[in-house]
């Protein structure tokens, strides 16, 4: 991560004019030559050092038996004890499974829907209609999860929620959506779609605006219909945006959203609802097992890093430009 930060901030320039022998000397000359550029770099380095890297020393409590009274430094080291406890815990498999299933459901359903919605919006010709719809679908993003959860509780309430009554009368069933474990994941994905799909279209709409209009004209002359044009011109046109967004989404994938899941969990669906984020809260904050939950959080971050590098490598292999 340091590598990428520093690289991005170093402007591409010609090498120093007089390469002197010796690495140290060479660097000194290089530094003298570009000192003002390095000065520009300084605020960024300080920002990352102070606000991003310095707090990470707290991660060390994952390898200690942290007691607040003793403080981080005085608490005894325990090595990988917390990790061993976690991996040998019967909860581990269930947590990993629940987290991954929810993550892939969100990625596999909510992410493509964002693109579909952007494409649909892009095809709307009447600009006032397009802008109105856009504004309307952005609104749910600004509602907090607490409100979304309360709405769900009202709509799906047992015996009197409108959606509960409607769906069950259509299907002829008596499903309690809020406590049935089989309906927990669909409900979570549905909420995610309702809340964030509209907002996610912003970047894709921006990318769609950059697609070369001449190509469409040429395609129309060649007799291509709407779907052909979308398939052969629009989608390839925004392919690199899709890849970048996908890599970012995968990096965030394991952040299944603490609030949303916490609010929707109850005793009957906990077996499918427990994910890393809620577990860390439950064990760490409510039970004071700070070290253990930090270890769990650290493990989650490591999986996240592996995923983001993996996807990036895959993107490059398939001849696409990756994120870095």
């Amino acid at each position: 991560m340091t590598t990428s930060t520093v690289d991005v901030k170093t402007p591409e320039q010609a090498p120093p004019p007089v390469p002197a022998p010796g690495r140290r000397r060479r660097f000194a000359v290089h530094f003298a030559h570009y000192k003002w550029l390095y000065l520009l770099l300084l605020p960024g380095v300080i920002y990352f050092a102070v606000f991003r890297y310095a707090p990470m020393y707290g991660v060390s409590i994952a390898f200690k038996d942290y007691v607040p009274f003793l403080g981080v430094n005085a608490s005894p080291w325990v090595g990988f004890q917390h990790f061993e406890d976690f991996f040998s815990n019967p909860d581990f498999g269930r947590l990993l499974g629940n987290t991954l299933i929810l993550a892939f459901l969100n990625l596999g359903i909510a992410f493509p829907l964002t693109i579909v919605m952007a494409l649909l919006l892009n095809e709307v010709r009447l600009s006032i209609l397009k802008r109105t719809v856009q504004t309307l679908v952005y609104i749910p993003h600004f509602l907090s999860w607490t409100i979304v959860a309360s709405l769900s509780f009202l709509l799906f309430a047992l015996d009197f929620g409108p959606l509960f009554l409607f769906i069950n009368s259509v299907l002829g069933t008596n499903i309690d959506f809020l406590s049935d474990p089989a309906w927990f994941r669909p409900l979570i994905v549905l909420q995610e779609i309702w809340k964030n799909t509209g907002w996610g279209t912003i970047i894709f709409l921006a990318a769609l605006a950059t697609v070369d209009q001449d190509q469409y004209e040429a395609a129309i002359i060649d007799g291509a219909g709407r779907f052909r044009r979308v398939w052969h011109i629009t989608l390839p046109g925004i392919r690199s945006t899709i890849i970048v967004m996908l890599i970012l989404a995968i990096g965030q994938m394991l952040n299944t959203g603490f609030e949303q899941i916490y609010l929707m969990t109850n005793a009957l669906n906990r077996s499918v609802a427990d994910v890393f984020d809620t577990y860390v809260y439950f064990v760490g904050i409510t039970q004071g097992a700070y070290s253990y939950s930090t270890a769990v959080g650290l493990f989650k971050s490591l999986v996240g890093i592996v995923l983001i590098f993996g996807t990036n490598a895959l993107a490059k292999r398939f001849n696409q430009s990756g994120l870095f």
Binding site: T2, T3, V6, D7, F27, V45, I46, F48, A49, V50, Y53, A54, Y57, G71, V72, N73
Partner: peptide, 25 residues
């Protein structure tokens, strides 16, 4: 080159971390 910058960054981080821990004592 990158390695040098890294070690510089690491030095800054360590210094900052030391300052912070010193504060809490």
């Amino acid at each position: 080159m990158i390695r040098r910058k890294l070690s510089l960054a690491a030095a800054v981080v360590t210094a900052a971390a030391l300052t912070l821990t010193a504060c809490s004592g």
